[in-house]
Design a binder for these strands. Sequence first.
DNA 1: ACAAAAAAGTTGACCCATCAACAAAATACT
DNA 2: AGTATTTTGTTGATGGGTCAACTTTTTTGT
Lengths: 159, 159
Amino acid sequence: METAADEKLGVYNVPLREMLTYRLSRLNAKMNAQATRILKKSSGLSQAQWRVLVMIDAFGPVPPAQIVRTSLMDKGQLSRTIKGMVTRGLIRLEASESDHRSHLLCITDRGRDLFERARPAMLARQTRLSGNLDEGDRAAFHRVLDRLEDAVEAVEAAE
Amino acid sequence: METAADEKLGVYNVPLREMLTYRLSRLNAKMNAQATRILKKSSGLSQAQWRVLVMIDAFGPVPPAQIVRTSLMDKGQLSRTIKGMVTRGLIRLEASESDHRSHLLCITDRGRDLFERARPAMLARQTRLSGNLDEGDRAAFHRVLDRLEDAVEAVEAAE
DNA sequence: ACAAAAAAGTTGACCCATCAACAAAATACT
DNA sequence: AGTATTTTGTTGATGGGTCAACTTTTTTGT
């Protein structure tokens, strides 16, 4: 459709099709939109809620701080997400003996129900996405992601 | 630091470190933050403004619709961005002879000045990011991006 | 030529992400 | 033990991105 435009892109000194950041954010936007839609349809969960449930599923009862560390989610956003999830009965808080500032997030039956309802679709999506990649490309992709993350930090440090 | 957590991740059936969407959004967030900071520092431009200027630089005077098609930017966001850029004198609008709904975006001297001020830093970042990737990995990366975009559309169509 | 459909742009509403400031509790330091 | 520092979580402000409704103009179909 916009083939004329696309061809033009390659000509100039800033070839948009190749720009990493541009391509990444476009792909990311698409994938986000898709995940949001699948979650909404299957379970009504938001992406943030889904991420919290994935964490609890992986770790068992966790303190919010651990989710922040491993997922790089924002403290504030997580705090609000948790509040909403407690209100809707998806998780409950358990006092932490060892640290009185914190508490443990535990999944409720209702939360697990929604989680299980969303999981098949999310897994199916995941495998369909990574499915038709051969092993070499998949490995290369992860390698590049690693390097890019490092490179971002490096540019950071260089300033 | 969170090595205990990281090791645990690999054990469960949803290995977070490998999840494509998760990794992509994290990397994307980092790169966005960095781009925002570089732009602010060098020129005061926002990412949206930068994108518009890149488009004009690549295409010459363009109608907004073309930017929407090639960058997948939201119509509404673009409309507001344009309004702001006109107000700040970065671009000016030229009536379109062929289509009375639309207009052409033209860069002004002021806009070009800011663009040129930001460009070196943005190019440097770009090359530093893609610099330490060997050609094979780089090609594989772009191939995977292509396939993922297609796969997203495919999952879309399958519903 | 005319009605129906599609495309371009604007606007308002809403959600989410990020940032900074803050209170409470734990840890480190000496 | 006692103060300083760090960590944890909460809250408010703000900017950006997404979605949907609407107007105007163009294109399509008959």
